[in-house]
Every structure is written in structure tokens, then in C-alpha cells.
């Protein structure tokens, strides 16, 4: 019951809000494709692509997935997802970064 009245409250701004979000995502999509055709050096190309991707993901999570309007608890869980992603990358890259360290010949 409580949830229903809350939804009605935000209904007026709803359609235009989602439409705007969609347009921003579409523009970022075009930017992604455009950046893909630029002859950037490898590291810069990756940096640009990841920046745009993170921006898009943030917009989707905040607006479409309603985290922006949600309780602290929802923020905590959304944050936990990203923290776990960091764990995955950190430990996996720790392996790749230290593979060449072997001090003993033939290991």
C-alpha cells in the first residue's frame, strides 16, 4: 500500500525522466562508436572506452534501477556489487602482474 502511493507520487515526472535518461544513453552510445574509429594509442583508447562504459552503467543503475531514489540499504548493496568487482579484478590482475617476477630460473 505504502509503496503504491509512493509510485503515484513520482508518476508525473516519470515518463520525461526516463526519456531523458534514454537520450543521454543514446548519445553516449554514439560517442562510444565514434571513439572506436579514432586512431588513439592503445592505453588511451581503453581509458576512453572504459570511462564511457562506467558513465553509462552509473546512469542505468542510478536512474533506471532507481538506486538514486532508494534507501541507504540499497546503496550499500549496490556498492557491495562494485566492491566485489574490485576484488575480482585486483586478485586476478595481481596474478598477471606478478607472473614475470619468478626469481628462480626455470620455475
Amino acid at each position: 500500500m505504502a509503496a503504491h502511493s509512493h509510485e503515484e507520487h513520482t508518476h508525473a515526472q516519470r515518463v520525461s525522466f526516463y526519456a531523458k535518461t534514454l537520450w543521454v544513453l543514446m548519445v553516449l552510445l554514439v560517442v562510444t562508436v565514434w571513439a572506436g574509429f579514432l586512431k588513439l594509442p592503445d592505453w588511451l583508447g581503453i581509458a576512453v572506452a572504459l570511462t564511457i562504459a562506467v558513465t553509462k552503467a552509473t546512469i542505468v543503475i542510478m536512474n533506471f534501477m532507481h538506486v538514486r531514489f532508494s534507501s541507504k540499504l540499497a546503496w550499500l548493496f549496490a556498492g557491495a556489487g562494485f566492491f566485489w568487482l574490485i576484488i575480482m579484478f585486483a586478485f586476478a590482475f595481481a596474478d598477471y602482474a606478478s607472473r614475470h617476477w619468478e626469481p628462480v630460473q626455470g620455475w
Binding site: S98, R99, E102
Partner: peptide, 18 residues
């Protein structure tokens, strides 16, 4: 439990430091 997965990879080419 999320910080230990590399123990399945000790002998499959993972860095010894990892």
C-alpha cells in the same frame, strides 16, 4: 570465501606470488 579462489590454480600457471 571470495578471497581464496586461486588455490585451485597453484599448478596451472598462476604466479607463485599470487
Amino acid at each position: 570465501g571470495f578471497l581464496v579462489w586461486g588455490h585451485h590454480m597453484f599448478s596451472t600457471g598462476q604466479s607463485i606470488y599470487a
